[in-house]
Amino acid sequence: MPENLTAPLVVAFPFTRSLGPVQSAFLTGLRERTVLGVRTRDGRVLVPPVEYDPVTAEEIRDLVEVGTTGTVTTWAWNPAPRHRQPLRTPFAWALVRLDGADTALLHALDAPHARAVRTGMRVRIRWAAHREGAITDIACFEPYDGTATATAGATPHGGAFADPVTTLTTPARLDYTYAPGRAQTRYLHALAGRRILGERCPSCRRVCVPPRGACPTCGVATAEHVEVGPRGTVTTFCVVNIKAKGLDIDVPYVYAHIALDGADLALHARIGGIPYDEVRMGMRVEPVWTDDSRHPDHYRPAPEPDAAYDTYKELL
């Protein structure tokens, strides 16, 4: 059994989030060191504010300003902060009910050690030096022994600010390790030796390429390895005229389905060595291997006549 292949897989995108009116007001407010909440019809003040009442589902737009000091309602010590969390040194995660609010906001609480944190302790917002209209405009909370800020209650607020923030860009990157599985590993190792391996189903006897370790139609494990190709027949194709981002292939090029000799379904590959507008269904092709790719770089016309439609029409 050859070594199982794995490879890093990064899923990263700077998501752009449109905020809607309430979240826009709240996040713009943070930029201006002002904390807004919403008042529900029954008088509760929700901070952070939401657009719809979590109990009645009513739309709520009644903005109020609350204090920047508050009380810890529960907390958890975080001895080993992870790199994208708010603080680099150990801190407490805390739910903080700001003065004037009826609900609590989650954020980091900067404290020297866990013994310095308790439920009920008073804290205040430490603002980030650079603020842009995001929850991270609050750098964290910090212990506070003074009195409540001026806005001890919740006071009405129009929610209007100059140059409001309407979208939020939230880059998110996740790192994965991709494992293609045993069947694919075997297939990929064989490719390194420039052989194309399929698997024959013990039940229907058909040969699947690339192999998956299971026959997709019979739902049984496949273990009999069969070398297929190298030549095959173009069953169908399209001519690609738009260059895809991050794809280093000059357009136009032909993307084809190729039924390799001995295989019972077509795999997908690029056709080269022939002008794109001369590629035909039924054309016989063979792989062209290069040193810099595990897969055949492309397939080129093989020196033999085209296959008759009837010989591959079942593979379309």
């Binding site: 529960t74 958890a76 969390q85 995660w93 989650l106 939020l168 939230t170």
Partner: peptide, 25 residues
Amino acid sequence: RQLDPYYLAPLWPDPACLAALQTRA
């Protein structure tokens, strides 16, 4: 990534932290 994408996810609070908040409560 399954947390509120506006107010929570940008802080990257991992699930063990959140469970610990519940334990403290």
